[in-house]
């Protein structure tokens, strides 16, 4: 089902959790809401679910106004960050809950409920845990049961709040793959919230990057990584080298020294130069935009990571760059750096 969110504003006291947010989600998408804590992503998710109410704005699910309905009437599957499994019920009863509380007129008979729960437990590959209690499960198992429980009501959309947040690193990796393949299988429109960029880029079809209650960029994982729309997105996604520069016309200067790179249309004035670590080419001294002395080199896997103290500024500015291991760099070497790809954003404040 498609979701459309328009002009949503939500404040908690004087804190603006969501500041005029618009978002369209197409049917069958697997969308990630990515942002640091306090960016409003969980609030947005809870508003779509009906667990929070916006101060103003519209939420439509499949074209119909969702704000006239409470959470219990929206048929939205919600997976809570800490799972919120019913601790006094078995796994089976947890999954069956949504079916058992249906109005008598539409409630299925016991045999149908049992068959459906069995099917869902099979889907999450945990049918053998049916009679356990939540406290007897591992984190990853609880996560999958919470998902099965949300799916039991045949949700029109599935919302997951930090689905992997409380798990350790190894389980997290496994579950990411699993969630992707599950989505391919059941194809229900899904939105998940995460603060982990790797998770968002790896799992989602589309990523919504949020900061301070606003949407910074919406795009495919490739787009948000390769073409960040704002300084925030560039800094938040992937590792970036950030240097304060001045733009005058098409000229870019660092500490008053010209860098021979074009300004790419950035407005004149104070700005920030963003370069990915691996997008900095290393050449012999004097050949590139920036000169510097290598202070330290660590090599691991296919790359070597060098700390370079830039010339000028008494060597106080130190950046880390990644270079392929075709030529081993040496500490003490003087090199020149040339950004291959970069973005320049006007400095805020």
């Amino acid at each position: 089902m498609a979701i459309e969110v328009k002009n949503i504003v939500k404040t908690f006291g004087s804190f603006a959790a969501l500041d005029d947010v618009d978002l369209k989600v197409a049917d069958g998408e697997l969308l990630a809401l990515l942002g640091p804590s306090g960016s409003g992503k969980t609030t947005l998710l809870r508003i779509i679910a009906g667990l929070d109410w916006p101060d103003s704005g519209e939420v439509a699910i499949d074209g119909e106004n969702a704000l006239t309905r409470g959470a219990s009437e929206r048929q939205v599957g919600f997976v809570f960050q800490h799972y919120a499994l019913f601790r006094h019920m078995t796994v089976f009863e947890n999954v069956a809950f949504g079916l058992r509380v249906q109005p008598r007129a539409v409630r299925k008979d016991e045999a149908t409920i049992r068959a459906r729960v069995k099917e869902l437990l099979d889907l999450v590959q945990l049918d053998w845990l049916a009679n356990r209690y939540p406290s007897q499960l591992s984190g990853g198992q609880r996560q999958r049961i919470a998902l099965a429980r949300a799916l039991a009501i045949e949700p029109r959309i599935l919302l997951l709040d930090e689905p992997f947040g409380a798990l350790d690193a190894k389980v997290r990796k496994e579950l990411r793959q699993w969630l992707r393949s599950l989505h391919n299988e059941i194809h229900v429109t899904s939105i998940f919230v995460t603060h982990d960029q790797e998770e968002a880029l790896e799992v989602a079809n589309r990523v919504v990057v949020m900061d301070k209650g606003k949407i910074e960029q919406i795009g495919s994982p490739g787009e948000v990584y390769d073409n960040p729309a704002t300084a925030f997105v560039h800094g938040f996604i992937g590792e970036s080298i950030v240097l304060p520069v001045d733009v005058a016309g098409d000229a870019v200067r660092l500490d008053g020294r010209p860098l021979n790179i074009p300004a790419l249309g950035a407005a004149s004035g104070a700005a920030k130069l963003f370069v990915r670590r691996h997008d900095m080419a290393i050449g012999p001294a004097g050949s590139g935009a920036l000169d510097g002395a290598i202070r330290h080199v660590r090599s691991f896997g296919p790359i070597q990571r060098a700390e370079v103290a830039l010339a000028g500024d008494a060597g106080k500015t130190v950046i880390e760059i990644d270079a392929p291991r075709d030529r081993e760099l040496q500490a003490g070497e003087i090199v020149s750096l040339q950004p291959r790809r970069y973005r320049i954003f006007a400095a805020q404040d």
């Binding site: 679910a49 009906g50 667990l51 409470g70 959470a71 219990s72 009437e73 929206r74 048929q75 939205v76 599957g77 919600f78 809570f80 919120a84 499994l85 019913f86 601790r87 809950f97 949504g98 509380v101 249906q102 429980r149 949300a150 039991a152 009501i153």
Partner: peptide, 10 residues
């Protein structure tokens, strides 16, 4: 847990 129950239609 109450929110979960509500979202499941209770």
């Amino acid at each position: 847990e109450e929110e979960a129950a509500i979202s499941l239609g209770a």
